[in-house]
Design a protein around this nucleic acid. Structure first.
Ligand code: SF4
Length: 338
DNA sequence: ATCCGGTCTA
DNA sequence: TAGACCGGAT
């Protein structure tokens, strides 16, 4: 074991958070947790993980689960493509690998939703294969350890840092080493605040701490400002039921939605669409995605009689709505708005 | 209001 | 390789 990994693992043994997939690192648990942890914080993932594993304790049960159940288990977690990919990956593993999660990173990367990072994380954490697992935390630490000023969204600089990391990998406890690096990024080498270098186990090896300012690393890329889309959300309902339609291809694909019109429509516009209805405002709401914003207003459109294809309010909780529509979804809790 | 983050697609 | 994809923390 080299000096760097020795210090890191000693720190990890003391400071690691107790996590369900660490207590029992069964490959299926690692698979599920790594899909959830893509783009998503640990604290957010935990309750979802518990519910998911309780509902689907084995990869065979996941493989044969319904789309509706899976979407419900993922509701609010975001990046809903992940759960479709996880489902397909589980089905492929059951059909082609006897339900055993493969240990070869190159094999893992052929499954949908598994890229460089997740392949490395599963192989090293579940099987101790000696590969790196570079997520955003690790990339940030590496940029600081080596005072790397390159644009890390590009492949070349990323490869440079990966090769430096490979030289640090221990021959034993590779999975713990990768987990320890990510844990250090989450608990000490912080992304949005000054890192806690005084308590960092590898500060003696850190270029940024010893010779520069850690806050200057990694280099930030200037964020493109995102376009704003005006939307009007129509909660078309009776006392007993509501009109629900799924999002089409692309953003929030497959999740439940209400009819949405481009632009901000006036009550008179709504009245023209639904002459028989009682129109009332549900107020404004905004939602920010990475690449666009929705600036929404909502109306309740109350009709005396529901159409046959509307969803009874009693069955609404089976559907999965995105967080973007939380305000309008919650208007259906309790009684009809005034 | 701004920052953060893996994979896939074009 | 830039842009699409989501929600939460600060
Ligand atoms: S010394 Fe500071 S900047 Fe360097 S790795 Fe540790 S926490 Fe990060």
């Amino acid at each position: 074991m080299n000096h760097f990994s020795e210090k890191l693992l000693t720190w990890y043994d003391i400071h690691q958070r107790q996590l369900p997939w660490r207590a029992d690192p069964h490959p299926y648990y690692i698979l599920v947790s790594e899909f959830m942890l893509q783009q998503t914080r640990m604290e957010t993932v935990l309750p979802y993980y518990h519910r998911f594993i309780e509902a689907l304790p084995t990869i065979e049960q996941l493989a044969s689960a319904s789309e509706e159940q899976l979407l419900k288990l993922w509701e609010g977690l975001g990046y809903y493509r992940r759960v479709k990919n996880l489902h397909q990956t589980a089905q492929l593993i059951v059909a082609e690998h006897g339900g055993i999660v493969p240990s070869d990173p190159e094999v893992l990367k052929r499954f949908p939703g598994i890229g460089d990072y997740v392949a490395g994380a599963i192989a090293s954490t579940a099987y101790q294969v000696k590969v790196s697992a570079i997520d955003g935390n690790v990339l940030r630490i590496l940029s600081r350890l080596y005072c790397n000023e390159d644009d890390l969204s590009r492949a070349g600089p990323k490869r440079d840092l990966q090769s430096k990391l490979l030289a640090l990998l221990p021959t034993e406890r590779v999975g713990d080493f990768n987990q320890a690096l990510m844990e250090l990024g989450a608990l000490v080498c912080l992304p949005n605040a000054r890192p806690l270098c005084e308590t960092c186990p590898v500060s003696a090896d850190c270029c940024a701490y010893q010779t520069a300012d850690p806050l200057d690393f990694p280099r930030k890329k200037d964020r493109r400002k995102v376009p704003v889309h005006l939307k009007t959300v129509l909660v078309v309902r009776s006392e007993e039921a509501v009109l629900v339609e799924p999002f089409g291809p692309g953003l929030l694909e497959g999740l439940a939605s209400f009819p949405m019109k481009e632009g901000h429509l006036s009550p008179a516009d709504i009245k023209a669409l639904y002459p028989e209805a009682i129109i009332s405002s549900l107020g404004p709401a905004r939602h920010v995605f990475s690449h666009l914003k929705w600036d929404m207003i909502g109306y309740q459109v109350l009709l005396a009689e529901p159409e046959a294809d509307w969803t009874p309010l009693s069955r609404l909780d089976r559907l999965s709505f995105p967080t973007a529509l939380a305000v309008y979804r919650s208007s259906l809790e309790g009684s009809v708005s005034p």
